[in-house]
């Protein structure tokens, strides 16, 4: 069953990301923890939808994919660099 209150779930994701200090990009698994009561596949679908809505963005090293708030942090090259 898809996430019942999608707007609320999106809000939780955005607020949780905005509160994070230092790191700007996260593994998909981190998003599962933001919404612990939801099914993993539903969270995955929501996160991917939020990317198409341009709320979030992917960062890919080629082998791994990280996700963060759109426009925040390094836009290319290794994350965590000054």
């Amino acid at each position: 069953m898809p996430i019942a209150d999608e707007a609320a779930a999106k809000q939780i994701i955005l607020e949780t990301l905005q509160k994070k200090k230092g790191k700007t990009k996260f593994y998909l698994k981190d998003f599962y923890k933001f919404l612990p009561d939801e099914k993993l596949r539903d969270v995955k679908k929501l996160v991917n939808k939020m990317v198409t809505e341009e709320l979030l963005e992917y960062w890919s090293s080629g082998s791994t994919t990280l996700i963060g708030l759109k426009g925040l942090g390094k836009q290319h090259a290794a994350d965590g660099e000054d």
């Binding site: 990317v51 992917y58 090293s61 836009q75 290319h76 090259a77 290794a78």
Partner: peptide, 20 residues
Amino acid sequence: WKHGGIVGVFGYGGGVIGRY
């Protein structure tokens, strides 16, 4: 080379790898 980045095509989270 620096590899990794946010580049891609709309709606896809794979297939393009940023390289600088």
